[in-house]
Amino acid sequence: MIRRLLAPAAAAELLIAALLGLAGLAGLGFVAVYAFAGGDTQLLGVALALALGLLGAALLIASRTVFKQRQAEEERPDFALPGDGTEATAEAATTTPADGVDDASVTLRAGVEGVTRRRLLGAAAGAAGAGVGAAALTPIASLGPRVGKLLGESPWHDGTALVEENGLPVRAEELEVGSFLTAFAEGADKRELAAAVIVVRVEESELELPSERRDWAPLGLLAFSKICTHAQCAVSLFRYPLFAERSPGPALVCPCHYSTFDVLKGGERVFGPAVRALPQLPLRIEAGRLIAAGELSGAVGASWGGVREES
């Protein structure tokens, strides 16, 4: 039917466009298998082979039908020694750059002359490129696990005990007012970002915690995530006023960009580029041991596109 209505070249163009379109679909098929069919090896291989094979077939058919195959002649470079009389001809054969440019554009135009439906072919080639390109980039997703809830994971729950680096329990009487230590969630990997907290002790009478956190700091003991909410360095400096009337109040400071968090107000940011407060861990004391009385008050570590901003 088509053959009778259209010139042979036009029929070939339709075939090429169809092949290119199918190549694009096969490429998207690869992405679909990767994402939804559990990454089945055989299906992935078949989809990619189809996409590449169809693309190859389209190009081969195009080279035989739309773009004419012509024979041309090219001079061979002369390797003879200088001074044996062959140089002059070699000089004459070289063309100036401007001529070369013209030649190239003529060749290009001559090749495209046969294409009547450039737009159709262009769109088909675009579809094929997009599909195969998507397929080629998809395996990058295998590099790491999906974000999911990964960035929000934390080992702290109601009842998790605080232990020191050597695994011994943190006891309330270890800490004097104005001192601090680093503690970890019992049983957690110490390298896990949310595992480390910094425990400080201040005068209980000075606390200005929000009303819902009033019982989070028994005996003036407070615990905060040790990871800065700006760029996740360890908040390892504790500023405690030596002379309360003149010095700024007790605060935790990150040594990377000097974000400063007010200890008395529950980790609220007072200086530096951090925006979110340092997450606070509610504490209670059981038989002299420090125990988490709930989860951390916010997301640990740097902010990202999925983190909730709390006041």
Partner: peptide
């Protein structure tokens, strides 16, 4: 210290 926040979600964090 400035994040671009829309609703209660951080769209562009400070770093």
């Amino acid at each position: 210290h400035f994040d671009l926040v829309i609703g209660s979600y951080t769209v562009i964090p400070n770093p």
